[in-house]
Nucleic acid binder design. Structure first.
Length: 103
DNA sequence: TGCTTGACCGAGG
DNA sequence: CCCTCGGCCAAGC
């Protein structure tokens, strides 16, 4: 059993705070979580969200402003972003100047 | 208690 | 712009 201040819990809290219509990066979430070099782990946390989670995991992309997932997963994230008004090119590129979440 | 696994990132070529 | 490499570190086994 893990105490409720694990890295995963901190990541959940931060991602939950990203407003609809905005995105941020794995590196930014890691920084806010207090582990600036754990961007890779942020992806790991989002990959293993509990079944039925409502966390807006799709609002997190890589530093290039592109979707890191591939294949069908990429399409699912793209649709989720489009559904809330974020423009995403066919290749998964997002205009970060316009949609980046500033804390 | 190790050892492996990456939805990452920055520097180089 | 593309690709590779090394470092990173929480979680899963």
């Amino acid at each position: 059993m893990e105490h409720d201040n694990s890295f995963a819990v901190r990541v959940w809290q931060i991602v939950a705070a990203i407003p609809e219509g905005y995105v941020t990066t794995y590196g930014e979430v890691a920084q806010l979580a207090g582990s600036p070099r754990a961007a890779r782990q942020v992806g790991g946390v989002l990959k293993r969200l509990p079944e039925g989670s409502t966390l807006p995991w799709h609002r997190v992309v890589n530093r290039h402003g592109t979707i890191s997932l591939t294949g069908p997963d990429l399409q699912r994230q793209r649709q989720a972003l489009l559904a809330e008004g974020i423009q995403v090119s066919g290749k998964g590129l997002i205009d970060m100047q316009r949609y980046r979440w500033r804390y």
